[in-house]
Design a protein around this nucleic acid. Structure first.
Length: 474
DNA sequence: TCTTATT
């Protein structure tokens, strides 16, 4: 249950104002345009904040609430210096959280104690979070605790850890059913306290029912988390997992497709031709590849210098693995796999942001192509200036023929996972909507291999893309 | 056995 907003907003917000949608913002303008900054009021007043003001992170915000909806809720505790809903830099998508700075430090403390986990906003499953932003914190002080007994509660964990410092947060990780996953996060006030707890507790005991001794270590950084998720995802697709053997062609084929995508996206994005989402995806893939080289992931994504089929991966039963387009250190699969001659090139060229939606009337697919070609010059659209940070000096290397393949060579893939649990994963997968081959036989081969390929709970639907002029009786 | 997000 949640407390009525009207009471928290001091009567200034009613249900009608809370349901007001914030969808009016466009990606390009998101951020500063919607930011509530330097509280309006007397224009002659220069907004000031305390020298030791605290920037708060606000979490568990319904995505239909924007700054103006949130303002009344927080104003109750003091004058707001700045309030910004976080949005995805490319899509403008509301991230469900915000930053809030009060003019006075005291206001932040009041808001935190009054609101943090004290109510649940409409439509949310978890209580609102009001706490100092990560940027306010001093060093790494959050621990991951593993190998707990599933019966142990937050209080049990607290008792175990309180001797080593001040515990700011203690959370048992639970599944949807509320059952403990046997692990927890414990956040201390300082890095030193956290380190002391590790020294004293890691491996110190084995909880009843646990399979090994207590694990106490610093929690993953965001980067590590991203990597783990990508690897989990890759595992689901049979890319890196040696267990892909039973899948035969499927695993290897998916791997080939992924590698082609990575290579192509990287090259196109560096050339400045592609849309920002694809550039983002390319950056993620590059990060992934870089980490592979550090040995954090298994072999197959490692750029090959022309060798053999990676161990543990069975060469596909399909007639050929398409030969890669080698760019930016990706050479994809070896030129020869399974002793067969390297086959025709495969290339992925269309990028469509919403592949799971049916390609109806306006034909977004064609728009996507048009968009790619439209930017076939060196300049970036102004709104996408961030990309030039990621790729400071885009080299002019765009393979000439990498456009849509001939009729009968282009696939449209349905049922790609839209939600892999968070927006980043979604973004990473969105560009995987199109694959084109340079001849119909290869396209058919890919259909045979990949149609019905299961990813999580869904199966890919892979069929020939409809001809440009075909009727679209969806 | 690494959460619900951190410009």
């Amino acid at each position: 249950m949640y407390i009525k907003m009207a009471t928290l907003a001091n009567g200034q917000a009613d249900n009608a104002s809370l349901s007001t949608s914030g969808l009016g913002s466009s990606p390009g303008s998101a951020g500063h345009m919607n930011g509530l900054s330097h509280s309006p009021g007397n224009p002659s007043t220069i907004p000031m904040k305390d020298h030791d003001a605290i920037k708060l992170f606000i979490g568990q915000i319904p995505r239909n609430l924007d700054e103006k909806d949130l303002k009344p809720l927080f104003e109750e505790f003091g004058k707001i210096y700045e309030l910004t809903v976080l949005k995805d830099r490319f899509t403008g998508m509301h991230k469900g959280c915000a930053f809030l700075t009060y003019c006075e430090r005291e206001s932040a403390l009041k808001a935190q104690s009054a609101l943090h986990e004290q109510k649940t906003l409409p439509g949310m499953n978890r209580p609102i979070q009001v706490k100092p932003a990560d940027s306010e914190s001093r060093g790494d002080r959050k621990l991951f605790v593993g190998m707990l007994n599933k019966q142990q509660s937050e209080d049990d964990v607290r008792r175990l850890f309180e001797a080593f410092g001040n515990i700011e947060e203690c959370t048992i990780l639970r599944g949807p059913d509320g059952n403990s996953k046997g692990c927890a996060f414990v956040k201390y006030s300082s890095h030193a306290e956290a380190q002391a707890a590790i020294n004293a507790l890691h491996g110190s005991q084995t909880m009843p029912g646990a399979s090994s001794s207590l694990v106490v270590k610093f929690a993953d950084t965001d980067k590590e988390r991203t990597m783990r998720r990508m690897q989990q995802m890759a595992g689901q697709m049979g890319m890196f997992n040696p267990m892909a053997i039973p899948f035969g062609a499927y695993g290897a084929y998916a791997q080939a497709l992924m590698q082609q995508q990575a290579a192509l996206m990287a090259s196109v994005a560096q050339g400045g031709y592609l849309n920002p989402m694809a550039a983002f995806a390319a950056a993620q893939m590059q990060q992934m590849a870089a980490l592979n080289m550090n040995g954090l992931a298994a072999a197959p994504m490692t750029p090959t210098s022309g060798g053999s089929t990676p161990p543990g991966i069975t060469a596909p039963a399909v007639p050929s693995i398409p030969s890669p387009i080698g760019v930016n250190g990706f050479t994809g699969l070896p030129p020869q796999a399974n002793g067969q001659p390297a086959a025709e090139a495969v290339f992925a060229n269309g990028i469509h942001p919403y592949p799971a939606q049916s390609p109806t009337a306006a034909d977004p697919l064609q728009q996507a192509y048009a968009g790619v070609q439209q930017y076939a010059g060196p300049a970036y659209p102004a709104a996408y200036g961030q990309i030039s940070q990621a790729f400071p000096q885009p080299p002019p290397m765009i393979p000439q023929q990498q456009r849509e393949g001939p009729e009968g060579c282009n696939l449209f893939i349905y049922h790609l996972p839209q939600e892999f649990g968070d927006a980043e994963l979604m973004q990473m997968f969105l560009p995987f909507g199109f694959v084109s081959f340079d001849n119909p036989a290869s396209a058919q081969t890919a259909i045979q291999a990949m149609n019905g390929f299961q990813i999580g709970m869904k199966r890919l639907k892979v069929q020939l893309k409809r001809p440009k002029d075909a009727n679209r009786p969806y």
